[in-house]
């Protein structure tokens, strides 16, 4: 079902639940993986994904029809991720490196993560990046998103995004060279 049709059905109280169910089925994987690459842990991702869709449910009526629905959904998911990570740092009074260390530990020990040595090292290298740079890298490298779309989601200029991605790639390659 097209986004436009979904929104029209959602506006009608009689077909609202059915339309929202369709919307969840359409976007659940994109939202889940976007969050999972940032917070690593499945349970945290599950909770955040559900919270994102609850927020979509609450605010979909106010959604501007001229904007892209998936861009709007990505923005909500991105905000949830960044809020979660910053609250995690505040909550435990941990410096950034300790949260990174915790996530790296999950990469090494979690049964939900499978990959060879190179893949796991790449994941660790990505975790070394600051949160927003990591977000930019994930969206470009894994999701093949266009800079224009990323700009709309993150509210940052295309030039800044290109520079951020370039720096992120350099940092990752430097990390991969280390033993």
């Amino acid at each position: 079902m097209e986004d436009k049709e979904l929104l029209e059905k959602f506006a009608n109280p009689e077909s609202r639940n059915m339309a929202f169910n369709q919307l969840v089925r359409k976007y659940q994987q994109k939202v889940y993986w976007h969050i999972r690459k940032m917070v690593i842990d499945h349970d945290d991702t599950d909770d955040l994904t559900q919270e994102v869709f609850v927020k979509i449910w609450k605010n979909l009526e106010n959604f501007r029809k001229d904007a892209q629905l998936y861009t709007w959904i990505y923005r909500i998911a991105t905000n949830e991720c960044l809020s979660f990570l910053s609250s995690k740092k505040r909550k435990f009074f941990l410096p950034i490196n300790d949260v990174t260390a915790e996530l790296m530990e999950k990469i090494e020990s979690s049964p939900d993560i499978a990959g060879d040595e190179v893949q796991l090292k790449l994941q660790k290298a990505i975790l070394k990046l600051p949160d927003k740079q990591r977000l930019v890298f994930n969206m470009k490298y894994f999701d093949d998103m266009k800079y224009e779309e990323m700009s709309e989601i993150l509210g940052t200029s295309v030039g800044a995004l290109k520079a951020s991605y370039h720096i992120a790639v350099k940092k990752i390659e430097e990390y991969l060279k280390q033993d």
């Binding site: 993986w33 999972r36 690459k37 499945h42 939900d112 893949q119 796991l120 790449l122 894994f142 991969l176």
Partner: peptide, 10 residues
């Protein structure tokens, strides 16, 4: 490095 999703879901 080949692009691979190393994360799994139940």
């Amino acid at each position: 490095i080949p692009k691979r999703n190393v994360h799994q879901v139940p």
